[in-house]
Write a protein that binds this DNA or RNA. Structure first.
Lengths: 221, 221
DNA sequence: ACATTAATTAACTATCTAGTTCGTAACATG
DNA sequence: CATGTTACGAACTAGATAGTTAATTAATGT
């Protein structure tokens, strides 16, 4: 968002223009939803014209899909850097849960895009070849941790990697995505530091407790 | 949605018209989001005119707020009927988690409305006096169960009722709200019966395990 | 039977919005 | 330095969309 003299003409720079459009488009879509975001508004925010959006992306929908692709790709990129393999199973899964928590905390716009995309029944993701086949490396990682934990006897519950991923994600996602209604209804700001730190510990303890099997009816202590 | 002869005039019935508007408005807002829903479309779907919507609700926004108020009120009403007080703490909290699961499963439109409202930072909920002060009886219930569980020694983890409510809700909410992106990316339909039953058990075991304290670092078995 | 009120219809308006057309200026390339 | 290509801007269009006006018809009470 390089500031420029008000009346000066925009310098020619295809890459920059494209990148800026994507950047503010992500913000606008995340803020106002797909239908709520305005093509004109996106253009105005970076001192270009709507024409450029159609020049580079073709349509509002294709722009939105491009935003999704960029956001998802970046997130997957970050996930690939997670390294907890050197830790013992219990610490590995706890750390992974807490890193996921931090990750959600740091990428609120992405969370909103996911929420919006779900309202549209993921129709745009399904239209994107890039995204349709984009799994997540975290699943393999969880799979390996679960195996190691079962082998070592630390984990008793037989769990599926996707389920565990879902359990961790749901907690982290909800805290960010639903903070506003939750705050309005219960008067608690889940994003405030005091609550955040406690909830961060909570997600780790939750997964570990679950995998240790203390919740199963067959194993009452 | 009483079907009527195509060209017949609509019978005069204020209550029915109002109720029908609310009904389809909920469906349309849940399906298309606030900005995406069309006032004309809502009117057409029940063979009335846009004018009636303004006659009864004043504006698109007030209609949306009325939808939220109705949906939230119904949900709270249902929550008040939950009775698990006669159960022992462990079974009580497990049952509550599973009932919450069922409840989310059965009220998908409500879940979507909540997701949509969060995208708008709960601005409409805050505008509603009805909703702004609407807590949830479940919080008291959880509080009592936690107390009983701590007293009996079944629960070791010191937990806050709001946190536990959030833990349960997040799991149940995510499975419904994010089923589309989750399905598109991981190829797993969390709404399918096979997965649903397993996840239902999982949420109960998760909370119980957490409260039994098997996850805390100070208490490794 | 008559007047009053409540519910409903039809047509209208002003504005907004995604998408287009066309012209033009900067840049690269021979 | 001529020529084609790439990036850009201004103005335009067609259709949609929230919200209104005003007339009309059905129910209600007297």
């Amino acid at each position: 968002m390089t500031s420029q003299p008000a009346s000066a003409e925009r310098q020619r720079d295809a890459d920059r223009t494209r990148a800026e459009i994507l950047e503010v488009a992500q913000r606008e879509f995340a803020r106002r939803g797909y239908a709520g975001a305005r093509v004109d508004e996106i253009a105005d925010l970076i001192r270009t014209t709507k024409r450029m959006i159609y020049y580079y992306f073709g349509s509002k929908e294709q722009l939105y899909i491009a935003v999704l692709e960029k956001a998802y790709t970046e997130v997957r990129e970050a996930e690939r850097l997670v390294d907890v393999e050197h830790l013992a199973p219990v610490e590995a899964i706890r750390t992974l849960a807490e890193l996921t928590f931090d990750h959600h905390d740091a990428h609120r716009e992405f969370i909103k895009l996911v929420a919006i995309e779900n309202i549209h029944r993921a129709e745009h993701i399904r239209k994107s070849e890039v995204l349709a086949n984009l799994g997540t490396p975290v699943l393999d990682l969880i799979g390996r941790i679960l195996q190691a934990g079962t082998a070592s006897g630390d984990f008793v519950t037989e769990a599926d990697a996707v389920d565990v991923h879902m359990m961790i994600s749901s907690f982290c996602f909800f805290r960010v995505a639903n903070q506003h209604t939750f705050g309005a209804l219960f008067g608690r700001d889940m994003a405030a530091r005091e609550h955040r730190d406690r909830l961060r510990r909570m997600v780790g303890e939750m997964v570990v407790a679950y995998l240790r099997g203390a919740g199963s009816p067959e194993d009452p202590r």
